[in-house]
């Protein structure tokens, strides 16, 4: 009766069966002790443990570090300094001149991040909306293009940064093509303007597939016959877009806008690999500033980094609340 397949199955299952037997007894004992209600705690414990160790405890530590000074790594070695780190970040002699600030790099990073977010989010919403509109039409190879635009989302940010570095560096692919076309090669990543533009372009390229997908889902949820009704009414295409597509896509657009804002503020990995914040500090963004202040600079100052990250966290909390509010409102007032 016991065929080869059966044996093989047993062999594969054996470790799991053993594991189940091992945890069976403690679980029984626990249940006898606490009753059936106590079992919920057992099953929640692993998740709560992970959440606690990797989220709650670091969050608490962060607040603690932000109140301490010195260069020590262990909290015990660090003297309490109150709100001095926040003061240091926010202190300037003349608030109209960045260089008079004590932590002028922090303000550089804040300014860069602000400019980046304004341009990158605008570009992101525009590009993903246009892409979604095109992909929503009955074009040839629609499935193929949908995949093409989504692939970069699956890439690790480091890979994204590296790919574009190989393309944009002095002896990179882009310059090779330009030379072959008889054009002058450019030092893309060593030019303040081009490097900043590259961070915007590359991060947009890397994430637009995700936002395109959200917008595409929204477009496909708009009933077809609304467009046919508009067609019967001789509605010009621009008016169809303004009066039908945009209003019905508004909830999805709001979600895209806020998500892009949040991720824009957090921008780090692909830019760090691509430009390293340079040339100079022209592509230094907040997360990189925090990383360098805390871990990478010679005078590393974990307290300062912690304080900066809490300030950034406050901005993100506001944006997240905005997103929650928008999506709730969208759910409540939606007519579909």
């Amino acid at each position: 009766m016991a065929g080869l397949g059966d044996l093989l199955g047993r062999a594969v299952l054996w470790p799991f069966v053993l594991l189940a037997r091992l945890i069976d007894l403690p679980l029984r004992v626990w249940q006898r002790w606490t009753g059936i209600g106590g079992m919920a705690a057992v099953f929640l414990a692993p998740t709560l443990l992970i959440f606690g160790v990797f989220v709650l405890v670091p969050l608490g530590l962060n607040f603690a570090y932000a109140m301490t000074g010195g260069t020590g790594i262990l909290l015990g070695e660090r003297p309490f300094v109150g709100f001095e780190q926040y003061g240091r970040l926010l202190e300037c002699e003349d608030y109209t001149r960045r260089l008079t600030c004590r932590e002028d790099q922090f303000w550089t990073a804040v300014g860069n991040t602000g400019v980046f977010v304004i341009f990158q989010v605008t570009l992101m919403v525009a590009v993903s909306l246009i892409t979604a509109l095109i992909l929503n039409r009955n074009i040839r190879g629609r499935g193929f293009f949908r995949a093409v635009f989504f692939f970069p989302v699956l890439l690790s940010p480091v890979v994204v940064g590296l790919i574009w570095r190989w393309i944009l560096q002095r002896q990179g692919l882009l310059n090779l093509i330009m030379v072959n076309l008889g054009l002058d090669p450019q030092v893309w990543l060593n030019d303040r303007f081009y490097a900043f533009a590259a961070t915007i372009g590359v991060s947009t390229w890397a994430h637009m597939g995700f936002y395109t997908l959200i917008l595409l889902a929204g477009l496909q949820a708009i009933p077809r016959d609304l467009y046919e009704a508009a067609e019967m009414d001789a509605t010009p295409p621009t008016r169809v877009f303004r009066r039908i597509t945009l209003p019905l896509l508004a909830p999805n657009l709001a979600v895209v806008l806020v998500l892009a804002l949040i991720r824009g503020v957090q921008i780090f990995d692909e830019v760090y690999v691509l430009t390293g914040g340079g040339p100079g500090t022209s592509t230094l963004f907040l997360t990189q500033y925090i990383y360098e202040a805390g871990f990478a600079s010679i005078l590393r100052n974990p307290g300062l980094a912690a304080a900066a990250s809490i300030l950034m966290g406050a901005v993100l909390v506001v944006l997240t609340l905005l997103q929650l509010w928008l999506s709730r409102r969208a759910e409540g007032g939606r007519v579909r």
Binding site: P223, D225, L226, E228, A229, E231, M232, D233, A234, T235, R243, I244, P247, L248, V335, R336
Partner: peptide, 20 residues
């Protein structure tokens, strides 16, 4: 001729009213 230029009006099974 396009639907727009035929001067006809249609009532859809789903009504197709603009929800917003």
């Amino acid at each position: 001729t396009s639907a727009a230029e035929r001067g006809l009006a249609m009532v859809f099974q789903s009504y197709a009213l603009y929800p917003h």
